[in-house]
Simulated assay, not measured.
Amino acid sequence: MNRPPADLFEAIDVERLRSGHGVKWGSLPQGTIGAWVADMDFGVPPAVSESILQVTRRADFGYPCWPGADPVIEAFEERMITRHGWRPEPGRARVFSDLLQILQVMVEYATEPGDGVAIHVPAYPPFLASIARAGRRIVPLPMTRGETGWRFQTDGLAGHLREQGCRMLVVVNPQNPTGRVFTPAELGALATAAEDLDLVVLADEIHADLVFAPHRHVPFATIGTAAARTVTATSATKAFNIAGLRCAVAHIGPDRLRDALDQAPLDFFGTPSTLSRVATVAAWRRSDDWLAALMSTLERNRRLVEEWAATLPWEPRYHSPQGTYLSWLDFTASPIGTAAPAERLERLARVKLSEGAEFAQHTTVDTAAFARLNFATSTANLTEILDRVLTVPS
């Protein structure tokens, strides 16, 4: 396969984005730039497009049939081995529609109403909403900012989780929205606490393919004996820009969870479509050259945001993400203000970011002065976004 040209991601078609069904641009008025939802403004890998077109040309939209092994599971296992150095145990992976479904299912099967579910905060807002909606208590593990970046407290972790009545630990790595890629030592501290308290761990590793050198993604299931208590959830959707197709994989380490799911009604969890499955396989097996070109673009944009932050007339205390294509911006000292900065930016600068307060909902952690910026766009569009943010009147 030939490597895509270096300028593949240098231009975006805004009219295509606005006229489609994507919420990131389609929900916004003309003149407002979407930089919020975690979709990329680029297309999809050629192999993904071709796989979908082949299904369409065959009018292959009947009930799905997969003789032999599930190709999505096979592609998942191959990718974990070759790219991330983890050999999943055969027979433990299941296909779901997305990671939010996986979280909801595991919360229902691994915990009881009133139990504590620990998660790093700020956190992906639908995860927080899902845990709260299920009647479980969110136990925040606050991400705090130091001189060298975002971190969390590991001393006394097991005691804290015990006091809070935790039965599950959710580990989002790379972390959304701070972009931290957790080190083996940090993951080891979490694994030790989980073992001490016999917690089920849900490891959301959907951004694993979007890590910037020299950082490296370490699957949680590779830490000591953690695999036996870990549900590893991932998908091709973020790295290959196919979120709307809805296909994800969960590798279920705990025997009791696997047995419980095997006994559930056959159609209880639904079935991802043929299109989502063939696209996922094409992404994981035939699109790494496209991904490499993408990462070059994201690295350039990441540095552009970092350079922009360094020249701001206020002190942003900004740390570049180590993974993902998301920047976590602090507007505390800015003229934009600490109350709903994303709303103010949308109104005055016509740029839509994600509101920081949403990333700490149902907790006492204060993220109201923050906003999340999606920089997976062309350099020209990103420059326009940053210029607009800088020129918002006080």
Score class of each variant (00 low, 15 high):
R167C: 03
G337P: 13
D98C: 05
V211D: 07
P177G: 05
P174A: 12
H215W: 10
N374A: 10
A264Y: 02
T32H: 15
N301C: 11
T311A: 07
R285T: 13
E307M: 14
T82F: 15
I385M: 08
T367L: 06
P174F: 13
I102P: 01
T230W: 02
R350I: 00
P140M: 08
R167S: 14
N173Y: 08
F370T: 12
G149M: 04
L386C: 12
T280R: 00
P184G: 15
F42R: 06
T363P: 04
R136Y: 02
P122A: 14
V389I: 05
H207C: 06
G270Q: 09
I12W: 01
R57W: 10
A35T: 08
E10C: 01
Y325T: 11
Y318R: 15
D196P: 09
C166E: 11
L99W: 05
E147P: 10
A213Q: 08
S273M: 11
D259K: 15
A69T: 08
H84D: 11
V117P: 00
L390C: 06
V231F: 01
A59G: 13
A260K: 04
R162N: 09
E358K: 06
V14R: 07
V105Q: 00
M295K: 12
L28S: 08
G146R: 15
F152W: 14
R317I: 04
S320G: 11
R246N: 07
A248F: 00
D366N: 06
D204H: 01
G224Q: 14
R303W: 15
M143Y: 09
S334Q: 10
A11M: 02
M1G: 11
S296A: 08
A333V: 00
D41K: 09
G116W: 00
G20T: 12
D39Y: 08
V117K: 03
G22T: 01
A339F: 03
E89P: 10
D330P: 05
L382P: 13
E186F: 10
R136D: 07
L291G: 11
W290A: 05
D288G: 07
Y109A: 11
G244E: 06
I385P: 03
G337T: 11
